[in-house]
Design a binder for these strands. Structure first.
Lengths: 161, 161
DNA sequence: GGGTAATATCTTGACGTCAAGATAATTGCT
DNA sequence: AGCAATTATCTTGACGTCAAGATATTACCC
C-alpha cells in the first residue's frame, strides 16, 4: 500500500465508476521519473551541468568525431522545440563548452561543435552519470531490469516507430 | 533497434568502457514520460487545465467532502515546493475553481477548497482523463500492464517508503 | 531564371518550477 | 508567562520550456 495505492483507493471510494488501473501505472511512472530526474541532476550539478545541458554535450560526444551536429539534429534526439534548443546552445556557448560554426553546405544551418573544454567535461560527467545510473537501478535484480526494460520498449513503441 | 538502442550503440562505439544497460532503461522511462505528459495535457486542455492545475483539483476531489486540504497536504502529494504550490493556488483561485479559506484550527495555515465550479469541472475532466489513460495504455496486454505496474512499484519503493 | 514553397534557426512573451529567504503563527521548554 | 525553535505559507529572482511568429536560405517547378 504505497502512496499511489492510496490515491487509487481514494478514487475508488469517491468515484467507483472509474476504472483507475491505468492511473496507477502512469502515476507510478510519473513519480518515478520525478525522483530519478532529481537524482540525476544532483550528480550532474557536480560538473556545473543540468540534465538539459548534459544532454546536448552527451549527444555531441556520442556522435563521434568531429563532435559536431546541427541544432535540428540535437532537437530531434532531445525532443524539444527549436526555441528550447537555441536557448540551450546559447548558454553552453557562453560557458565555452560548445561553439557555433557555419555550415559550409547550407547557409540556413549552423554546426554545434564541442570545444576542447566541453569534450573534457562531458568525458568526466558521463562516467559519473553512468555510475550514478547503476546506483539508482541497483534495487532491481538483473532479471527485473531486463523485464522492465523490455516492457518500457514495448510501451515506447506506441509513440516512436 | 529503436531510438534508445541507437543511442546505446553510439556509446558502445565511442566509450566501450561504459556499461550503458541502466541508461537504456532510464532513457526509455524518460522518453515515455515525455510522450505521456504531452498526451495527457492535450486531453486536459479541453477543460482549460494542464497537468499541474488538474493535479490540484483532482487531489481535492478525491479527498472527499468537504473537498478541502491545506497547501502543505497538496504539496506533499504533488511533490512540489511551497512556491510552486502557492503559484498553482493563485492561478486556480483567479479562475474561481478553488477558494482560500481560513483554517480555524491553525492561524498559520489556510484551507484550499473546491468551488462548485471547480467541483463540476474536475468531475468532467477526470472522466475524460481516465478514458484517455485507458487509450494510452491499450497497446499493452492486461498481463503486460500488470507486470509493468508491479516492476514500477518495486522501483518506486526505492524512493518512497 | 523567377517566384513560390519548404526548411533551419532565432526571437518574443508567457508559464511552471525551484531555491532561498521573509513573514507570521504555533509549540515546547524553562 | 515568556522566549526560542519549529512550522506553514508567501515572496523574489532566476531558469528551462513552449507556441507562435520572424528572418534568412534553399529547393522545386513552371
Amino acid at each position: 500500500m504505497d502512496q499511489v495505492d492510496e490515491i487509487l483507493s481514494q478514487w475508488h471510494r469517491e468515484r467507483p465508476d472509474l476504472d483507475v488501473g491505468p492511473m496507477g501505472l502512469l502515476g507510478r511512472l510519473a513519480r518515478l521519473y520525478s525522483h530519478l530526474t532529481r537524482a540525476v541532476e544532483k550528480t550532474l550539478a557536480d560538473y556545473g551541468l543540468n540534465a538539459a545541458s548534459f544532454d546536448v554535450l552527451a549527444t555531441l560526444r556520442r556522435s563521434g568525431a568531429p563532435y559536431a551536429l546541427s541544432p535540428s539534429a540535437l532537437m530531434a534526439t532531445a525532443m524539444v522545440t527549436s526555441g528550447t534548443m537555441t536557448n540551450r546552445i546559447d548558454q553552453l556557448e557562453k560557458t565555452g563548452l560548445i561553439k557555433r560554426q557555419a555550415n559550409p553546405d547550407d547557409g540556413r544551418s549552423t554546426l554545434i561543435a564541442l570545444t576542447q573544454q566541453g569534450h573534457a567535461l562531458v568525458e568526466a560527467a558521463v562516467s559519473a552519470h553512468v555510475a550514478n545510473q547503476h546506483r539508482l537501478t541497483e534495487c532491481l535484480s538483473a532479471a527485473e531490469k531486463q523485464q522492465l526494460n523490455a516492457l518500457l520498449a514495448t510501451f515506447l513503441a506506441r509513440f516512436e516507430s
